[in-house]
Design a protein around this nucleic acid. Structure first.
Length: 575
RNA sequence: GGCCCGGUAGUUCAGUUGGUUAGAACGCUAGCCUGUCACGCUAGAGGUCAUGAGUUCGAGCCUCAUUCGGGUCGCCA
């Protein structure tokens, strides 16, 4: 091991491209790979920006040459020398046309052999990579990802700052919230038996800031939810959180469209068309079976209830009679690939995961038209279904019928996504952004026998639905919106209630007694008595945004030190 | 909490119907090599087949349990 002495880095790998040949420069980093050709040695040094090749040959003094020979993988080195063009170039790496003719090499640190090779091409077991996450992070793709994440965060900061949003920190040790996800709890030493909760979001605080006169608030903030993990869900995650006063829906969406346009331009160099498309919750459910529709492909749902309600197939007629419905997808042109066996697999998926009773089908190949249900239908009914579905040779018709309409949505919504991914039915290079609006204000909980707030209890009802809060809560729509990108919810928000009287009605509809509302949200209810401008906001999942922009499918790939499925952290062993 | 998938050399994997000494590639070690860039060539080291029990003349392979990891449903206002 040697010290740096007076040597200091002058250039990163990426800087080579804008440095004149002949310059004397110093680089530093890890030995990614060395190639010893006998009387010629090449060493690839990796820094956070990329690779640079060190060359040792004819002009290298013997002592220096021997030193270069002894350097092993992942050792830390610093090298000074003259930038020159390679006599044989490669376009496989960014700096492939250049190398450094080394005059001085410092061997700053040895290194044990890492438990896995540090290369992007290699696919190491997740748990091993995460146990040695600090080594995993040396991989160039991880560096690229975290640099890009930073760029997105900077872009958000700049944009919102320029638009007069003020970054204000909100507390992490807060009062536990009654509804929603489970809270992480922290014991309060000075109050034995009492606990703080870690915030699921800064929701209440950002609303209070609007009442304090900070018209526009913004924060990139960590949030915590003690729920099970998924490929796109971590127990602690980062939100780009914002709130604005003196606004209605259109104002919030417009500001955020500006942000999205800028992020896509700055980070990916892509122009997205604004204003973004908007779709109501109702339309999204009916056409795509989901409140976060992936609109990069078709396979839309079609309601067949009216055509088959009197049919001899009791599964169909029964579902309609029970108040549910019969919905279908036409898997256009997939008859050859979607074999009977594949359909059976999909049926199991629908039954197992989405509570569908089954999956009715008609498969129309050049050889035959086979169906699980057509024998029960009249020729007129079949013809009517064909016409509505635009069903023809080469297609497969897939139908879910259920007394519960939601099940037909869930099952077919998942089915169209499954089909599209399995058979590559969309352009992977495309980005579809849209707003989903007019969410239901309430959601009925069978378990609790009462309505829950779908977004949160401070969400403003739509102006024309105000009376429905009492008369028909299930039909009442909210001033709530989600931003959906390629079938993923990237963010969401709402306009908040700023009228104490309306807030009281809301609590009442949710089954809160006056006392309970006061106990849990007293400070907030009181605050609204002292003058509250109309306001609303939105929060993005930063992790998901990074994932989407980089087209990654695991949220752990965009977080430096993520947790695994049981919410522990393999490297440190927490908790 | 339910269901599904997986654990074989440092790494990624193969391993036939249960049958002799468990293989490959990469990595590692040593030697040779003056333009490589996944350098090449030669040789070598490296294995409690996740753990435990069972079935069997015989188990990497079959059974059960445990454990670790992954996916998914519930859950995620």
């Amino acid at each position: 091991m040697e010290s740096m002495g007076t040597l200091r880095r002058t250039h990163y790998a990426a800087d080579l491209l804008k440095t004149p040949v002949g310059a004397e420069i110093t680089v530093a980093g890890y030995v990614a790979r060395s190639r010893d050709l006998g009387n010629l040695i090449f060493i690839d040094v990796r820094d956070v920006t990329g690779l640079v090749q060190l060359a040792f040959g004819d002009s290298t003094p013997q002592e220096l040459f021997n030193k270069a020979k002894a350097v092993k993988s992942e050792n830390v080195v610093m090298a000074k020398g003259v930038l020159r063009e390679r006599s044989s170039k490669t376009d496989k790496i960014a700096t492939g046309a250049y190398e450094i003719d080394v005059t001085e090499l410092r061997h700053l640190s040895g290194a044990e052999l890492p438990p896995f090779e540090i290369r992007d091409e290699i696919n190491v077991r997740d748990d091993l990579a995460l146990t040695y996450r600090y080594l995993d992070l040396r991989r160039p793709s991880m560096a690229r990802t975290l640099i890009l994440r930073n760029k997105i965060a900077m872009c958000a900061r700049n944009y919102f700052y320029e638009n007069h949003f003020i970054d204000i920190e909100t507390p992490y040790l807060i009062k536990s919230t009654p509804e929603g996800a489970r809270d992480y709890l922290v014991p309060a030493r000075l109050h034995p038996g009492h606990f703080y909760a870690l915030p699921q979001s800064p929701q209440l605080y950002k609303q209070l800031l609007m009442l304090s006169g900070f018209d526009r608030y913004f924060q990139i903030v960590r949030c915590f939810r003690d729920e099970d993990l998924r490929a796109d869900r971590q127990p602690e995650f980062t939100q780009i959180d914002l709130e604005m006063a003196y606004v209605d829906i259109d104002d919030v969406l417009a500001v955020n469209e500006g942000f999205l346009k800028r992020v896509f331009k700055e980070v990916l160099g892509r122009d997205i068309e604004t204003p973004l498309r908007r779709m109501t919750y109702k339309e999204a459910m009916e056409r795509f079976g989901s409140d976060k529709p992936d609109t990069r492909f078709g396979l839309e749902l079609t309601d067949l209830s009216d055509l088959v309600k009197d049919s001899g197939f009791s599964v169909f007629s029964g579902a309609v009679a029970a108040g549910g419905g019969v919905r279908a997808i036409n898997a256009k042109g997939l008859a050859d690939r979607l074999t009977r066996k594949e359909i059976d697999k999909l049926t199991e998926l629908m039954k197992g995961h989405y509570k569908a009773k089954g999956l009715a089908y008609t498969r129309f190949t050049a050889d035959a038209r086979s169906s699980s249900f057509e024998k029960f239908l009249s020729p007129e009914e079949i013809a009517a279904v064909d016409a509505r579905m635009d069903f023809a040779e080469g297609d497969v018709l897939l139908i879910v019928a259920d007394a519960n309409r939601q099940i037909t949505y869930d099952a077919l919504g998942a089915l169209r996504v499954e089909l599209a991914h399995k058979y590559g039915l969309f352009d992977k290079d495309r980005f579809d952004l849209l707003w989903i609006t007019e969410f239901p204000l309430f959601e009925y909980s069978e378990e609790d026998g009462r309505y829950h707030a779908k977004h949160h209890p401070f969400t403003m009802p739509m102006d024309e639905d105000l009376e429905l809060v009492e008369s028909d809560p299930g039909a009442c729509r909210a001033k709530a919106y989600d931003i959906v990108i390629n079938g993923t919810e990237a963010g969401g928000g709402s306009i908040r209630i700023n009228d104490p009287a309306l807030q009281r009605r809301m609590f009442k509809a949710l089954g809160f007694t006056e006392e309970r509302a006061q106990q849990q949200f007293g400070f907030l209810i009181d605050a609204y008595k002292y003058g509250a401008p109309p306001h609303g906001g939105l929060a993005y999942g930063l992790d998901r945004l990074v994932m989407l922009l980089l087209q990654l499918d695991d949220i752990r790939d965009v977080i430096a030190f993520p947790k695994i499925q049981n919410a522990s952290e393999l490297m440190s062993g927490a908790p």
